[in-house]
Design a protein around this nucleic acid. Structure first.
Length: 198
DNA sequence: CCATTAAAGTTGC
DNA sequence: GCAACTTTAATGG
């Protein structure tokens, strides 16, 4: 999760609404804001040269994005696009830094948040370096489920479409579908009412 | 509630 | 991996 929004508001964060599909920032742009989703979902992705997309992450309400380059003056390495109608808090870098200085406790929060992203990226990098599609999908699902309380088998409903899972793991939808069906047969996942349980 | 249509999922090639 | 086909979800009466 991100930072308690009351701190963001008091530091001068502003709410901004985006329509579904609207670009929030683009690859190559300069980063100068901390973003946090209040309502809706945002995708972080790269547009492939052959107009396929690679999905880096999907940011749900309460989570933040764009924070990785707040302190290094680098350009964004991905696009951020609203997946549905969104309300997003934007806080300018200078005010964000001021906020951290006013509330040193938030440094700790911010660090843990950065580390969570680093951890996610290393898990996904490893999973996606595997050759077999099934291993990539399992890697993704294991990470997603690791943040859940309930670790019972087949208790976790995958919150993504097959298309999204494919784009997160760099395989194509058809492969994802065929692989998931095989995994169902092998009792790795359960498919109930078209939804995937892991 | 049903009809329409867009989006997601499926399958053969 | 495309394209044709099927199913589900969303929208509007």
């Amino acid at each position: 999760m991100g930072i308690d929004s009351k701190y963001l508001y008091s530091a001068g964060a502003e709410e901004k609404s985006y329509r579904s599909g609207e670009l929030i920032f683009a690859e190559g742009g300069q980063s100068s804001f901390y973003f946090q989703v209040i309502e809706g979902k945002v995708k972080l992705c790269n547009q492939n040269s052959d107009r396929k997309e690679f999905l880096q992450d999907i940011i749900i309400a309460g989570k933040c994005f764009g924070e990785s380059s707040l302190f290094n003056d680098k350009e964004y390495r991905m696009d951020a696009v609203a997946l549905e109608d969104c309300v997003i808090l934007k806080l300018a870098r200078i005010n964000f830094v001021g906020m951290l200085e006013t509330y040193p406790k938030l440094y700790e929060k911010f660090c843990s948040l950065l580390c969570e992203r680093t951890y996610y990226q290393s898990v996904m990098l490893h999973a996606n370096s595997l050759l077999k599609p099934a291993d990539r999908i399992v890697g993704l699902m294991e990470y997603l489920k690791s943040t859940e309380r309930d670790q019972e088998k087949f208790s976790f409903k995958i919150p993504f479409t097959r298309q999204q899972m494919a784009n997160l793991t760099g395989i194509c939808v058809e492969t994802a579908i065929r692989t998931l069906k095989k995994m169902e047969k092998d009792a790795v996942v359960e498919i109930r009412d078209h939804k995937i349980f892991f």
